[in-house]
């Protein structure tokens, strides 16, 4: 009776030792050496996996950082300067400060400004509409208002305003650029967020001749060039009947906004201008 117990114990112990030896060598053979810094960096990153950095997800981005041993040209739009600072610290690198950006909708062809002439009867998708026709208002470049950008946004930063039919960006935007890619017409651009969220931009991308553009939309840029002349910083260029404000050169002086005859240049989050004090009022008080 005892013999049976002893033999089975010896057999089991022998099997165990033999397996341990085999497993040890297999583990040595197939060992994967991963840089521990990848885990550290990936933990710092926000984990949104939005792809805004240009990589498939946060871990791929962390791998790229560790592999490059430098932060040049790499930035996390979601985490911004804070997260990149932490990553730099973990990697022992210095980070250059980047100006935060935000998505800007460069079209103001709302239902009132650019009334619909035909009805689009299909699924609510800009990609369909763009491949089929120029849009309900007739503007071949403007926002179609069917919300491909809203669907693409992981951060709930975009919604379509029911009154204007145009997308509105809120402060949840992290400038990941998903909407820029989703828009078949290239209406959305990433621009500097600006001090106190103040921005000046041309809210139109129509390159048709002025008269034609104006026929479809009353707030279209007609390419008159007045803004180019008035800009003291050479920030505005005119090409293909369309003005463009370079956000790196623009100093937000707002001279162009007042000059634009169609109101295509927009200013955001500025305090309302002081009305020039009427002279008649002054004379009234003196008498």
């Amino acid at each position: 009776m005892n013999e049976i117990i002893i033999y089975s114990m010896i057999t089991l112990a022998g099997l165990g030792i033999a397996s341990a030896v085999i497993l040890y060598f297999v583990a040595q053979k197939f060992k994967v050496i991963e840089d521990p810094r990848i885990d550290i960096v990936a933990d710092i990153l926000p984990g949104a996996n939005c792809g805004g950095c240009g990589f498939a997800g946060c871990r791929n981005f962390a791998e790229a950082i560790v592999k490059a041993e430098s932060l040049e040209g790499l930035a996390c739009p979601v985490g911004g300067a804070v997260v990149m600072g932490n990553v730099g610290q973990a990697m022992g690198l210095t980070v250059e400060a980047t100006e935060p950006k935000i998505a800007v909708v460069r079209c103001n062809g709302s239902k009132a400004h650019a009334p619909a002439k035909v009805v689009f009867d299909s699924a609510s998708r800009c990609s369909f509409a763009h491949s089929l026709f120029s849009g309900e208002s007739g503007c071949p470049d403007g926002c179609l208002g069917l919300g491909d950008c809203v669907v693409s946004c992981h951060f709930d930063a975009l919604h379509i305003d029911s009154e204007t039919g145009l997308p509105v960006v809120n402060d949840k935007c992290v400038a990941c650029g998903a909407c820029v890619k989703a828009c078949p017409r290239g209406v959305i651009e990433l621009r500097y967020k600006g001090k106190k969220d103040r921005r000046v931009f041309v809210s139109c991308i129509n390159t048709e001749k002025g008269a034609i553009a104006k026929k479809n939309c009353e707030v279209a840029c007609i390419g008159c060039g007045k803004c180019v002349k008035v800009c003291p910083f050479d920030a505005i260029t005119l090409a293909n009947n369309l003005a463009y404000i370079d956000f790196e050169k623009c100093k937000l002086c707002r001279k162009c906004v007042a000059e634009c005859p169609t109101g295509a240049i927009h200013e955001l989050n500025f305090p309302t201008r002081k009305e020039p004090v009427a002279t008649s009022e002054q004379s009234d008080t003196t008498t």
Binding site: L132, F133, S134, G135, G138, P140, E208, I212
Partner: peptide, 10 residues
């Protein structure tokens, strides 16, 4: 000159 076609694109 450019003229709009069936889809409205010139």
């Amino acid at each position: 000159e450019d003229y709009p076609g069936a889809g409205g694109y010139r």
